[in-house]
Design a protein around this nucleic acid. Structure first.
Length: 736
DNA sequence: ATTGTTACGGTTTTT
DNA sequence: CCGTAACAAT
């Protein structure tokens, strides 16, 4: 992130109480967006067009002109990262007090914490289940219903559940499958719903859907919010789904001052239900007879060089049925867009590392460099390459902190304190650290709990239930019951106090030390980190307490582990690159079936176009330099396969490109030298058809090396492409 | 009940 | 290849 620019921005925004100053340095359409008064507003913001700047300035402007108090503004972002960023920018303008700036999920959680009790069995202390919790629960329910979780997979059912929930608010949507699958689904779904109610828990989908239900069942609650939020802003509107659309419409329904912001070309979440039509139809949808939607197009790009921008535009133009945008920039080219062909993933990683060294030499700071990839498994090879060449790096997103076992265990303790009905959390901690309570004991307790219709935690606290358990288990359970009782008083206090107590009373570090392997110490470090988080949370949110901390933990998966200013290269997926920018971007794995991804291709043109948008998003993150790489072979699941360059590469205009061979490749080629036709296979040439004893018939694609190193790349009809050493291959020419 | 072993299956992206 | 989950052994 460019420091110089940010500092200037901050300084200017600091004196931002004067409305006129908030328009300084903005172009004409940007000013129009900031100064828009009442009524619906659509901001079509091309990549790098200063969108975040416009939104934050607009918020400050609304406050500075007295159109709204900060607490009358609701700003919804797509990710927590974006919410954090926006909050800090708005705070820098001293306009943030009482403002709601959050994701849809966090906004809904906040609303439900207040009023969910009007909706039914839940209490304000409800737990939020993440995807893993949900799948785990579904799995046990599938088993309970007498089916095999391998045949009816939890993830599939989970996906169907989401569809089904959304369908209740969308008449056009198919509710559920039929046949045996439908039957299984219906049964498991009912069990799941009942269990979630009993456990006082909500999953991610529930947060949104139950809020809508609440609004529907209690119009008075909706009115409170709709009246309160004089101005509503939604960022990344192209990525909203139908339920989010309904929430937006409801919340902005009273004042009608809804501003949405987005770019149809950057819609990359259709696969999880996002609906681009929301933004495409916004103008028609939100215009009323009295007031038309104001539309502002931001087309000046402040980020990228013309070469990068032009290349990105050329690619996105291959998508059918989009509205052409005239993105333009005043910047000057620094370096052509580069395409690098590599031998394999290792070669690719080394190549990128080498180029990063070069960039560093020419004065590009590491925090201005990023490597993007389509799928997480590519992270490993890249990391190794960077480590070997001594390039410091940090991973953005990725392996989630709160998914780690030791963290989930401790969080579960907190969860049980706050919400004793949460059986999933209780099960997690019942024998952690080991206290002699095995599956059999748990089953006994669960049966007891089911008979009395009480929670598992309540069963643990019942002496009668514990008496049914024999042996060490009983003692362990008594200890646990006492522990929970001791901890009970901490549920209303600060989070870190409760955590410290849990750690002490369970001898948690001793427990970690027992499983001492290579992970042992890093586990302890993670726990320390959790503790530090809790302490910071308590300091920043004196009223937050354990409950607030749990909510934060449930919805913030990525922790702000990422420091945009650290002297490190950033590694991230294309999806998490959205909204960021870097001086130099490496986009690895530009290969068919990877980008575009094979699963997306199976979905047809829609899938392909979304992949193209993803590629476009990645390209447009780059300010000055962009390097697209692909490898001829890549290892996956322990198997090496041959790759083809991505079709997107061929959609780039030649005149903007520079095609490089990877250095490692070049070195290898030097060693091998040209094919000299001496020795075995002297009579072969490229294009010949040959026969191999084992692989059968194939055609020669290339020849290189000499004497014993002479080798051929052959495309076999059955066996695919192979590299063969001619000295051993015994190829027979059969024609050309 | 805990530990160690093997089999298995999965890897698009995130709240 | 990797980590997790079901399984067997003590």
């Amino acid at each position: 992130m460019s420091l110089d620019w940010m500092d200037v921005e901050r300084a200017r925004e600091d004196e931002g109480q004067d409305p006129a100053s908030l328009l300084e340095g903005l172009n004409e359409p940007q000013q129009r967006a900031v100064e828009h008064g009442e009524g619906p507003l659509l901001i079509l913001a091309g990549a790098g067009s200063g969108k975040t700047r416009v939104i934050t300035r607009r918020i400050a402007w609304l406050v500075a002109t007295g159109r709204a108090r900060p607490d009358e503004i609701l700003a919804i972002t797509f990710t927590n990262k974006a919410a954090r960023e926006m909050r800090s920018r708005v705070a820098a303008m001293r306009a943030a007090k009482g403002m709601w700036i959050a994701t849809f999920h966090a906004t809904c959680a906040r609303i439900l914490r207040r009023d969910i009790e009007l909706l039914g069995p839940w209490t304000r202390d409800f737990s939020i289940y993440d995807t893993a919790d949900k799948n785990q629960l579904l799995k046990t329910l599938i088993k309970e219903a007498g089916w095999d979780p391998k045949r009816f997979r939890p993830q599939v059912i989970s996906h169907m559940l989401g569809e089904w929930k959304a369908s209740q608010f969308d008449t056009e949507r198919q509710a559920a499958p039929d046949g045996l699958e439908g039957e299984v689904f219906a049964t498991v779904r009912d069990l799941y719903e009942a269990r979630m109610r009993a456990a006082n828990a909500l999953d991610f989908d529930d947060l949104l859907v139950r809020t809508l239900e609440l609004f529907r069942a209690q119009p008075g609650v909706l009115d409170q919010y709709a009246h309160r939020f004089r101005y509503v802003l939604v960022d990344e509107y192209q990525d909203t789904n139908h339920v989010q659309y309904l929430l937006t419409r409801a919340l902005a329904g009273w004042h009608g001052n809804l501003a949405v912001c987005g770019d149809p070309d950057q819609s990359i979440y259709a696969w999880r239900g996002a609906n681009v039509a929301n933004i495409l139809d916004f103008e028609r949808d939100f215009s009323t007879p009295e007031r038309a939607v104001a539309v502002v197009k931001l087309e000046q790009n402040y980020r990228s060089t013309p070469g990068i921008l032009g290349a990105a535009q050329a690619v996105i133009r291959h998508n059918a049925g989009r509205k052409e945008k005239d993105l333009w920039t005043e910047k000057e080219d620094v370096d052509p867009v580069r395409i690098v062909e590599c031998g394999d993933e290792e070669d690719e990683a080394n190549e990128i590392a080498a180029r990063i060294h070069g960039l560093r030499q020419s004065g590009v700071p590491l925090d201005e460099i990023a490597i993007f990839y389509r799928v997480n498994f590519m992270q490993r090879a890249l990391e190794r390459g960077l480590r070997l060449s001594g390039v410091p790096y940090q991973i953005v997103g990725g392996l989630e902190f709160y998914q780690r076992r030791e963290i989930k265990d401790l969080v579960s303790y907190l969860q049980v304190l706050v919400n004793p009905a949460d059986d999933v959390a209780t099960r997690r901690i019942i024998n952690v650290p080991a206290r002699g309570v095995g599956d059999k004991s748990v089953a006994l307790l669960e049966e007891f709990a089911r008979d009395r219709r009480i929670s598992l935690a309540a069963a643990i606290e019942s002496e009668e239930a514990r008496a049914r358990v024999r042996g060490v288990g009983r003692k362990g359970l008594t200890g646990l019951a006492r522990l929970l009782e001791d901890l009970g008083g901490l549920r209303d206090g600060p989070a870190h106090v409760a955590l410290v107590q849990i750690l002490e009373e369970t001898d948690y570090f001793v427990h970690l030390a027992k499983g001492e392997d290579a992970e042992g110490s890093s586990r302890a470090e993670n726990v320390e980190e959790l503790l530090a988080h809790a302490e910071r949370w308590d300091a920043e949110n004196p009223e937050g307490g354990v409950r607030g901390f749990l909510q934060e933990v449930a919805l913030v998966s990525d922790v702000d582990g990422w420091d945009p200013d650290a002297e490190r290269v950033s590694l991230l997926t294309l999806h998490s690159s959205k909204g960021l920018e870097f001086g130099a971007v490496f986009l690895a794995g530009c290969e068919e079936e990877l980008l575009p991804h094979v699963l997306a291709l199976e979905e047809g043109d829609g899938g392909l176009e979304e992949e193209r948008r993803l590629f476009y998003v990645g390209m447009t993150r780059a300010k000055e330099r962009l390097c697209l790489s692909w490898a001829r072979t890549r290892m996956r699941f322990g198997e090496t396969s041959w790759r083809e360059p991505s079709r997107f590469l061929s959609e780039l205009p030649d005149e903007l490109l520079e095609t490089d061979e990877s250095e490692a490749e070049a070195r290898e080629a030097d060693v091998l030298g040209d094919f000299d036709g001496a020795g075995a296979g002297a009579d072969l040439s490229v294009g010949d058809w040959v026969e191999h004893d084992h692989f059968g018939l194939g055609q020669i694609r290339s020849l290189e090396g000499s004497a014993v190193n002479a080798r051929a790349t052959v495309q076999f009809r059955e066996a695919g492409q192979r590299i063969l050493l001619l000295q051993y291959a015994n190829l027979k020419r059969v024609g050309n």
